[in-house]
Design a protein around this nucleic acid. Structure first.
Length: 574
RNA sequence: GGCCCCGUAGCUCAGCUGGAUAGAGCAACUGCCUUCUAAGCAGUAGGUCGUACGUUCGAAUCGUACCGGGGUCGCCA
């Protein structure tokens, strides 16, 4: 077992055995205490706060509990030294052989490691860009984040469905068709362009209108023209998603899901649960203009659930609001019996979260599921620290395909997830294209390429094939350098990082880990330059070279595995 | 004005499910290319963790208030 699972088991055993003797106290989850590699080496190889966490349950001081625990841990052979430090930390020092064994264990179990995670059925909805134009860099953030979260959740064993909700109904589609029709007629009569406020700007829709097939236009069947337009735009969106290696399992159409039956069912449910009524909305605080009219419409009783006001379900003319159709969609997801629904939304939808959660929770009080909304902050495009100029008014913004073409998918993906979703990203073309340490993608890829280079040199020097060596039966005993121990610990921590990234829906934990690992590896490489005895490949010492190469091989495996979860390439040489 | 997010080194950020002396990268300064890829390594310097109270054995982390920055606030999505 790897150290974390091993110690967790031992410590939980201790707690369980004490539970029998201390009947009055029931000890619950074993996830409350930490098992971590401290940054300060004086605090041991591994440190735990278990005594401080459980001392109250045992009704003794943390130090006394720590003594009891240490007594039980002493039976473990590989432990060299145990220290109790105020106010109650237990610091564990292992013999060197323990870490060598850990590396062996890691290598043997690498491809079939079992995450101790309770399997869930999860639906993650992301991108869901409106089919009214091409995607931009903001969409890319949600796309890559959602895609990567999904991959990580799958990695730890969950069942994940990736969905795209197509908003192919409502006002913006009317506006879209108005724009298309404008270009159509304009072409026919070859009139001068009159910029209308009610149209989508930009050249893109002009091009789409030209692509429309003659037959359908001639038929003058509005519905079929609309479908054709939507198909053309979705085709482009899907192409862009593919260029980023973003995959969805299903595309759910708002039009198709908002059937009369679904609408009526929902309205019945809302009425039966006393969640809706026909009434008048309060005048919104931000509204100052004269166009505001008091009109009767179907409202959701969200005010009593902590919202500012009751929210509209139907427009006064009876059409669905976006809120209503979103409830229908989310109810549909709930009815498909997911344990967890994840939505990736842009930060501009933040005000909408409470509303939707209220509605869905009220409608499904008897069901156990959770809805998590992850909001992504803005992405600023920079060119050498200067903001890239974008004109929203003209519709001529930097499209996602421009960005992919300019920097490539690897860098784009990495940058989009390398920091917490709630932080803004400065996406600087100059940095992102650089091939230096400024650019973390290259730094990690370079580490991998160095590993590969070492493997080649090793094979040539000793006329062997590292990948054919019987690593499973190799006993490691000479990996005693500080740098080697640091690397082994880091490698053994890989699966914990994945679990943490999965539980928190935070892929940046993985990108940070990979960067740190690359850094530690480059440092390891560097010591060989200062002291020839610390080189990885020693010409006249096959045994130590082999052991060090097994470590290098392990590093390369972890980097490759991590990068493949992120869908970022690892070139063999650079 | 209401609600949401952010405030950690000069800059960009980790750390936030409470733990020990708060960490990286960039920028600055100093070393290392007869080399296992210098696309790299080693070192120096840099901090009232926005402010103030509170909870606790212990707070960057939790709570409250305030300050500063951003987002959002019809029936758009």
């Amino acid at each position: 077992m790897l150290y974390h699972d091993f110690l967790k088991e031992k410590l939980t055993e201790f707690l369980d055995s004490e539970k029998v003797t201390n009947k009055e106290k029931k000890i619950e989850s074993s996830d409350l205490f930490s098992i971590e590699i401290p940054s300060n080496q004086n605090f041991g190889d591994i440190s735990t706060n278990i005594a401080m966490v459980y001392c109250k349950d045992f009704k003794i001081s943390p130090q006394d509990l720590a003594k009891k625990i240490c007594k039980s841990l002493k039976r473990i052979n590989d432990i060299e030294k145990l220290e109790i430090v105020a106010p109650g930390f237990i610091n564990i020092f292992f013999k060197d052989i323990f870490w060598s064994n850990q590396l062996e264990i890691l290598m043997k179990n690498f491809n079939n490691y079992k995450y101790s995670v309770k399997k869930k059925k999860i639906c993650i909805e992301f991108v869901s860009a409106n089919p009214t134009g091409l995607m931009h860099i903001g969409h890319a953030r949600g796309a890559v984040l959602g895609d990567t979260i999904a991959s990580i959740l799958e990695e730890v064993g969950h069942e994940v469905a990736r969905e795209y909700y197509i908003n192919d109904a409502g006002e913006q589609i009317k506006k879209l068709m108005k724009t298309i029709n404008f270009y159509k007629e304009k072409d026919a009569k070859s009139q001068n362009i009159i910029i209308e406020q009610e149209l989508y700007p930009g050249d893109y829709l002009k091009l789409i209108s030209k692509e429309l097939s003659k037959e359908k236009l001639d038929s003058e069947n509005n519905a079929s023209v609309e479908n054709q337009v939507l198909d053309l735009i979705m085709r482009d969106i899907k192409t862009d998603l593919q260029s980023m290696k973003v995959n969805h399992h299903s595309f759910i159409s708002e039009k198709q899901i908002s059937t009369e039956k679904n609408i009526n069912n929902l309205m019945d449910e809302l009425r039966n649960k006393n969640l809706s009524y026909y009434g008048y909305q309060d005048k919104p605080k931000s509204v100052s203009d004269k166009n505001w009219k008091r009109e009767k419409q179907l409202l959701f009783k969200s005010k009593k659930l902590g919202d500012d006001m009751d929210r509209a379900l139907l427009k006064p003319n009876g059409e669905l609001t976006y809120f209503m159709s979103d409830i229908i969609y989310h109810q549909n997801k709930v009815d498909r019996n997911y344990d967890l629904l994840i939505n990736i939304w842009g930060i501009d939808h933040s005000g909408y979260v409470t509303r939707l959660k209220n509605a869905i929770n009220q409608l499904n009080k008897n069901k156990s599921f959770s809805l998590v909304v992850k909001l992504t902050s803005l992405v600023n495009l920079l060119e050498g620290r200067q903001a890239v100029k974008m004109s929203k008014r003209s519709g001529n913004y930097v499209t996602l395909r421009d960005v992919v073409e300019k920097v490539g998918v690897d860098v784009l993906r990495f940058m989009m997830i390398s920091r917490n979703a709630d932080k803004k990203i400065d996406f600087d073309f100059e940095i992102v294209k650089s091939k230096t340490k400024d650019n973390p993608v290259f730094y990690i890829q370079y580490a991998y390429a160095r590993c590969m280079s070492l493997i080649n040199i090793f094979n040539q020097t000793f006329n062997l094939n590292l990948s054919n060596l019987n690593i499973d039966n190799k006993k490691l005993s000479r990996l005693n350098l500080v740098e080697e121990k640091i690397l082994i610990k880091k490698l053994c921590n890989f699966f914990n990082i994945i679990i943490s990234a999965a539980n928190n829906y935070e892929p940046h934990k993985l990108t940070n880990y990979l960067f740190d690992l690359a850094k530690d590896f480059h440092a390891y490489w560097g010591v060989g330059r200062l002291e020839p005895s610390k080189k990885i490949i020693i010409q006249n010492d096959l045994e130590i070279s082999k052991e060090r190469m097994i470590l290098v091989f392990g590093i390369s495996l972890i980097i490759k595995k991590g990068m493949s979860l992120l869908k970022i390439s690892c070139p063999e040489s650079m």
